[in-house]
Design a protein around this nucleic acid. Sequence first.
DNA 1: GTGGTCTAGACCACC
DNA 2: GTGGTCTAGACCACT
Lengths: 123, 123, 123, 123
Amino acid sequence: MIQLNYRDSRPIYEQVRDGLRQLLMSGAILPGEKLPSVRALASSLTINPNTIQRAYEALENEGYVYTQIGKGTFAAELSDVNLERRQELLVQFDQTASELLFLGTPAETLIQRLREMEEKRND
Amino acid sequence: MIQLNYRDSRPIYEQVRDGLRQLLMSGAILPGEKLPSVRALASSLTINPNTIQRAYEALENEGYVYTQIGKGTFAAELSDVNLERRQELLVQFDQTASELLFLGTPAETLIQRLREMEEKRND
Amino acid sequence: MIQLNYRDSRPIYEQVRDGLRQLLMSGAILPGEKLPSVRALASSLTINPNTIQRAYEALENEGYVYTQIGKGTFAAELSDVNLERRQELLVQFDQTASELLFLGTPAETLIQRLREMEEKRND
Amino acid sequence: MIQLNYRDSRPIYEQVRDGLRQLLMSGAILPGEKLPSVRALASSLTINPNTIQRAYEALENEGYVYTQIGKGTFAAELSDVNLERRQELLVQFDQTASELLFLGTPAETLIQRLREMEEKRND
DNA sequence: GTGGTCTAGACCACC
DNA sequence: GTGGTCTAGACCACT
């Protein structure tokens, strides 16, 4: 379900957070659906529950999930995702794209990639 | 020359690395040109030379600069920049863009941003 | 009657408690009037009766309602509301206001807000 | 320096966070000044460093402090405090004030309190 | 020496 | 059973 890479310099909770975000984006987990419990996911990834907890907390701050104490953690609606997160992504998009252009990547190459992603989403 | 932001959560050496990369990308430092010496830059930013050293090492690993022992550090040719770095950037581009699309950003918005960046580069 | 927000981090029983307090404050439930029975409210909100029970207990501790065994729960007179609750609110008022002032909010802004609330109450 | 109350239902890290915020607001810690190290404060309050860490993290999210890894945690400028925090406070102000008014507290009483706080700040 | 992350294990509040 | 908090103790990255 989620791939952890212990050689990666990114902390584990960030890898979990990003992996879950990916699952939410891919539609593998739909809005309103329950995410695995902290303990369940921890044992399935054989890491400590506290680490999962941090990942869930981070996703909640971004607006991707909400939690009901005593009930569980659930996928939120798209519209609930933070404006902050959106802005963060735009900044990152600009930085990445401008370096790619600088390194000689033709803008058309990037544009085509975007169009492909869009198509895939509409499948 | 380089703006350090101590409130930024990124470590100083990453800020220096990114700042220098920016200078290289903007054309402020041209291929073949000598970068300031480790000590000079350290004292001008009033930080530890070791921190500058780490930044230079990172840029060398990316292929943005090369070092001639006893001579100094110099800006490399574009074509020398690592394929790894290019790959890394493409992956990041895809991840960022797909999340933006997922969050409802129209592909056209991103494409327009790309076109604007390209124009700016050709000024 | 009461809006539950499952994305709110507050526990359900606090949301019920605050919602009822709001109804009492707005005059929707007048002193002496009977509140809905625990079971009725529970089924109307489709939550567990225990949760409603906790909310009613909390309001009784604050002095906002009183319970007659076998009869039901009733809205109390204003004068019966706990001094403790009043004290608690004053402390919170001071803390909140002083931080707002510290952050540069002009006292006049806060005073105007107070005057507007007062007017609304007298409608 | 900071008073912990183990009977309080608020978690310890929130009490630490609020206590520190108070110290920042009172001018006991000035912008740019270094806060005690995580370990130092932990041992002085005889609680776990992780708990202090959470408090510092929360204050950083609010914009009250910034941290330099390897250096320490420092008090930020007022202007860096989050808009979110400001809005949160306004909501709390309105809720508290309206309940106080409902309970019969004259608006003039609250206004006078505000004026006194303002005077104290200008000493 | 500083903050950041992680584990193991525990207890609590909520539903 | 679920998430939230806390402790004790450890290791790592950064300066």
